[in-house]
Design a protein around this nucleic acid. Sequence first.
DNA 1: CTAAAACCTCAACATTGGTTGAGGTAAAGT
DNA 2: ACTTTACCTCAACCAATGTTGAGGTTTTAG
Lengths: 149, 149
Amino acid sequence: MFFTMTHLSVGKVAQRCGVNVSTLHFYEKKGLIFSSRNAGNQRRYASSTIRRVSLIKAAQQLGISLEEIRQVFDQLPKFAAPSQHQWQLMASNWQRQLEVRISQLQTLKTSLTGCIGCGCLSMQSCPLYNAKDKLAAEGPGPVLLQRKY
Amino acid sequence: MFFTMTHLSVGKVAQRCGVNVSTLHFYEKKGLIFSSRNAGNQRRYASSTIRRVSLIKAAQQLGISLEEIRQVFDQLPKFAAPSQHQWQLMASNWQRQLEVRISQLQTLKTSLTGCIGCGCLSMQSCPLYNAKDKLAAEGPGPVLLQRKY
DNA sequence: CTAAAACCTCAACATTGGTTGAGGTAAAGT
DNA sequence: ACTTTACCTCAACCAATGTTGAGGTTTTAG
């Protein structure tokens, strides 16, 4: 090879990813990214690190924890870019999680729509109320209370 | 009124909301819920507290912080159920936030789809890459590097 | 060559959202 | 009545996700 794969300084990566240097140190300690060192012990990153960090940030948006991200990354090559196959596996995996998350939020939104309709003057028909309050089976209780709920 | 609005013990509320008693203490300390006390200094909650807690849990699902929730709650009556108007305001507000959040996730999902297509062998066309790496304008750089990225 | 900027390690701190436990009081079942 | 369960306060702790700072080294720009 005529170029080194590991030539980006930590500051450069930080700048290009829009994160702090300390965050990259942190990610490295957590095993999410990797570096080699130059003669003066400074970190040098493969350029693929930038995509790794972008992926971390993207995945965090999905509510995926750093630990989960690490587990996925552990199946990828540390320094080289992932193969197309690996990449596709990971991406479609995350897409599925994303779909689940979206549909959850949509369910919630629908619930809120129901609540807007009901004005929540009735606890019988409130989807939020009914979500968790499974123990409400203490008998109907005072009618007025239901309306005041 | 012939019934008291504040008659639920902390354990009862916890049970019906599916949270720990300590969580209710915590929420109360944070100003998210309120209680009166009986003769023996034990908390007694208005029944509307159950909906408050359900709302907290629902809003957390949306990625809304407790502090933001508190700010919304601060505009509601502490013990009574919110009026229909107040309730609708809050709900539709949260619905908007929810919509934003959903569309963000959908954008991300689309990005991933693009990535699956490209196999990310090209950093030119990778949406994840392009999301943050605005500083990539250092000239094209080695062609091979782009493919290895 | 020198000064500034960037980098190093390690430890402490910050924030969010709670949980756990000690030491004691109140309420409820039998 | 007595015992068990629930409750009280307060403080300490936990885990995730970083940030900040001290004290020292390396790289880079002029």
